[in-house]
Design a protein around this nucleic acid. Structure first.
Length: 419
RNA sequence: GUGGGCGUAGCCGAGCGGUUAAGGCGCCAGGUUGUGGCCCUGGAGAUCGAGGGUUCGAAUCCCUCCGUCCACCCCA
């Protein structure tokens, strides 16, 4: 049908029926983050575009072709947040958080925007829950971030998940490795796919992540970055692994795992479902020890992750995980005729002030219709107010599920409701 | 950004060149004057995603666009 207005491509409405999932996921996410000592931070939906150009990285797809970027009326270049980490780091610097006890551990729930071609599990606006621990390079924080994410999924009832873990080194060892990788690939360019030839030029690390069948033998023969780590990076990585084991989180060493963002150093990880489709990653993150300097701050290490709420819910639905229903409506008051309507409005007003969720039936409809309406609203009690009830000072109160009917005074009704 | 599938009322879904465009769910109303879940009856709701074209005639064929889904790409 010809609708005049619809949601923009790649965006969705979250209808009342879906809200229980959101409430549940956000509740668990926040609880878990708080339990791990993280505190909430909120940052603007839009920021100076350069924050992401420099922070997320000029070479990334996100910056090159996916940002929602615009000029405001003063001519300033702004961008809708494509991911959360640069905002949090900017806030850390802006508010002098280096003078707080380190590390500063922050979490956020925020929409992210990327101009991409939508498909299941990939939207132009999606919601990320993320955590960042800034100001320490302790590998225990890396392990803790991974564990936090893992425990959160666990609490939500998601199983069949896998932690993929890798280290991609730092400035002192990665460049040499990338050079070696290039030398290796130079000899095999004829055997790999077109995308890989492009990656060879633009983003060599990503060569390892190619899913094209013809490239797999070449990947298998490539030097592994985990063999090329410098001593400090190797030691750090070993500690991360040991701490994960200590925390009881199972992980899989995945040398081919690299990440799309420029700022990652050392630890990178993803959590994927066992039956993952192409948009399978539900959460991922890593260490970004060089990011703060890029943003103009002093050298400050950091580790963090983000997970997509929509993808979590997708997986919860796939597994038919139960979530609590909406808080139930407790009373619907049906009334026909002006006198009873006035009394009914006054009654629900008092009920609500007493903390009871209550509504009146639609006064433009018959009593029968109001009762049908009440059925749809599924309250605990249905109350009927008519002239007779007003005369007697007693309400007709029905427990909807049992049809059990009583004549009660308002006080008795309230007592019943407070059981 | 590339390739492919799909697009009929709020939802599911028949029809696939000539029909008043089925049916189900849901919604609304009625089945005597104030009584809900089942049942019965009735009603509202569709410019057949949009715009062009072919044809005497198009939901049905063609083109373009839009949306959605799948794969790639990328990533949460």
């Amino acid at each position: 049908m010809a609708r005049k207005f619809t949601t923009p491509r790649g965006t969705v409405d979250i209808l009342p029926e879906e809200q229980p999932y959101w409430r549940q996921v956000l509740r668990v996410a926040e609880q878990t983050a708080l339990a791990f000592g993280y505190r909430r931070i909120d940052t603007p939906v839009f920021e100076q575009a350069d924050l992401f150009v420099h922070g997320t990285g000029e070479a990334t797809d996100i910056v090159q072709r996916e940002m929602y970027i615009f000029q405001d009326r003063s001519g300033e270049m702004l961008a809708l947040r494509p991911e959360g980490t640069p905002n949090v780091c900017r806030a850390y610097l802006q508010h002098g958080m280096a003078s707080r006890p380190q590390p500063v551990k922050l979490y956020y729930v925020a929409p992210a925007f990327r101009y991409e071609r939508p498909q299941a599990g990939r939207l132009r606006q999606h919601t990320q829950f993320g955590c960042e621990a800034i100001g320490s390079s302790d590998p225990a924080l890396d392990a803790e971030a991974i564990e936090l994410l893992w425990r959160m999924y666990e609490a939500l009832g998601l199983d069949d998940l896998y932690v993929l873990l890798n280290s991609i080194g730092d400035q002192s060892c990665r460049p040499a490795y990338v050079a070696r990788l290039r030398v290796y690939y130079e000899l095999h360019l004829a055997e790999v796919c077109d995308d890989c030839r492009r990656r060879y030029d633009q983003n060599p690390l990503r060569l390892l992540d190619c899913k094209n069948g013809q490239c797999q033998p070449v990947i298998a023969g490539a030097p592994a970055i985990t063999d090329a780590l410098c001593e400090p990076c190797a030691a750090h990585f070993a500690s991360v692994q040991a701490y994960l084991d200590a925390a009881g989180v199972a992980w899989q060493l995945t040398p081919r795992l690299v990440r799309g963002l420029d700022y990652y150093t050392r630890t990178v990880f993803e959590i994927v479902p066992g039956d993952a489709g192409s948009q399978g990653t539900i959460g991922s993150g890593g260490r970004y020890d060089g990011l703060m300097e890029v943003l103009g701050g002093p050298p400050t290490p950091g580790i963090g992750f983000a997970t997509g709420i929509e993808r979590i819910i997708l997986n919860l639905r796939k597994r038919v995980v139960e979530v609590g229903p909406d808080p139930l409506l407790r009373v619907v008051v049906a009334a026909v005729g002006e006198g009873p309507r006035v009394a009914a409005v006054a009654l629900v007003s008092r009920l609500r002030r007493a903390g009871v969720q209550a509504v009146v039936g639609d006064g433009t409809r018959s009593l029968k219709a109001q009762l049908r309406q009440a059925e749809g609203l599924a309250p605990q009690y249905v109350v009927i107010v008519g002239d007779e009830e007003l005369r007697r000072g007693r309400l007709q109160v029905r427990e909807r599920a049992t049809w059990n009917e009583e004549r009660l005074t308002e006080g008795e009704l309230l007592a019943r409701l407070s059981d």
